[in-house]
Design a protein around this nucleic acid. Structure first.
Lengths: 197, 197
DNA sequence: GCTCACATGTAATAAGTTACATGATTTC
DNA sequence: GAAATCATGTAACTTATTACATGTGAGC
């Protein structure tokens, strides 16, 4: 999915400026499964306007920069409705954190600890953020998507909490005592049921 | 993280051909948190070789194409060890599935059902795959990373299972009372709160 | 006879990121 | 006085994807 479609979709929900769209996708309720930056948003908005899928009007607030508030047109709605019928592409997940964990045995123990703790903090911050967003939002689709994100992050955090000790000790690392039982998440661990939300 | 570092990391673990690296990242044990394709892997391998971080030797199997088996050099190991000390960048997650779910109210009910079922199948396939890979692998770092992936996918699948009915009925969609012009921008529609889980 | 798996590689293209340029107001 | 927030936009650059080019052997 390209940034054009993304902008169209957001503007399907509400009017917004490029600046606001950037906020939504980089910090807001969409940030956990979407990526975009100014350099792609502004050109996309211009292009969509040229194609007649968007319109905008200027809002002047004295003493502040003029805002170009974009709104979707009927053509825009039609184009988006068509796109959304397509089968969604597979999810994409990239994690430098996990990649780094593969090589935990090359890391000074303290460094590994810091990395894992950093990841846990990221996850917790994301969770707080999503939980808050969920309380504020009223659309069911959005709540569903946020709930999904919360479930995933909770599971990841829980995994790290449960495996923190093993990971930070020599367990994860090669360790002098390369001893048996390395299963970090023992297969059928009493997989404590996660109640999402 | 770029493809060069990725190749270096994989070759840190074992020798491989470009073809094999592609398999590892697109189907193998790394596939759940890494992305790469031929078009980036082969050039990366060549460049790394030019820089002295890799070597290769040809393996000829009669009747089959010659294989260029790459191995990491000492310089390569050093370069990689240095990279791995850096603080990993934040995880990236992109989901067209979740994006589509935001607009569930634009979708024919059957289509929404298919999409959710498709996602569940993807998750289940990924889980089977990871579970199998975990059984085969012996490195703790790898097991840790796989365990993390399993935890996330399990949570996502569970979330969908628990919310499937609500989602596929009119619950997720606007509902019968919301059917006409579906003005998405009206702020305060009667928002029935979905209790995720 | 066809398609799939093995195997390497290139080139055109698409796409988006980073950094820059500009500028006012508010908060520390 | 400095930094952050609001606000829009461009251009150079990096990066990777897609499609193509080539060829064999095995299985259906």
């Amino acid at each position: 999915m390209n940034i054009r479609t993304l902008c169209l979709g957001i503007l399907y929900l509400k009017e917004a400026t490029g600046y606001e769209i950037n906020k939504l996708v980089s910090e807001g309720e969409f940030s956990h499964f979407i990526e975009a930056s100014y350099g792609s948003i502004y050109p996309a908005l211009n292009k969509l306007t040229d194609e007649g899928l968007l319109t905008w009007h200027e809002e002047a607030h004295p003493g502040k920069p003029a805002r170009k508030v974009y709104a979707i047109t009927d053509e825009g709605r039609a184009a988006f409705a068509e796109f959304i019928q397509e089968t969604p592409k597979a999810d994409l997940f990239k994690s430098e954190f996990l990649f780094t964990c593969l090589y935990a045995d090359l890391l000074p123990p303290d460094h590994l600890r810091l990395i894992i703790e950093g990841q846990m903090e990221h996850l917790q911050a994301g969770l707080d953020h999503l939980t808050q967003a969920k309380g504020l939002c009223d659309r069911r689709g959005t709540q569903f998507a946020i709930g999904y994100g919360i479930a995933m992050k909770e599971a990841a955090l829980k995994y790290l909490q449960e495996n923190y000790d093993q990971a930070v000790r020599t367990e994860l690392r090669g360790g002098e005592n390369y001893d048996e039982d390395c299963s970090p998440s023992n297969s059928a661990d009493a997989s404590t049921v996660i109640t999402a939300s």
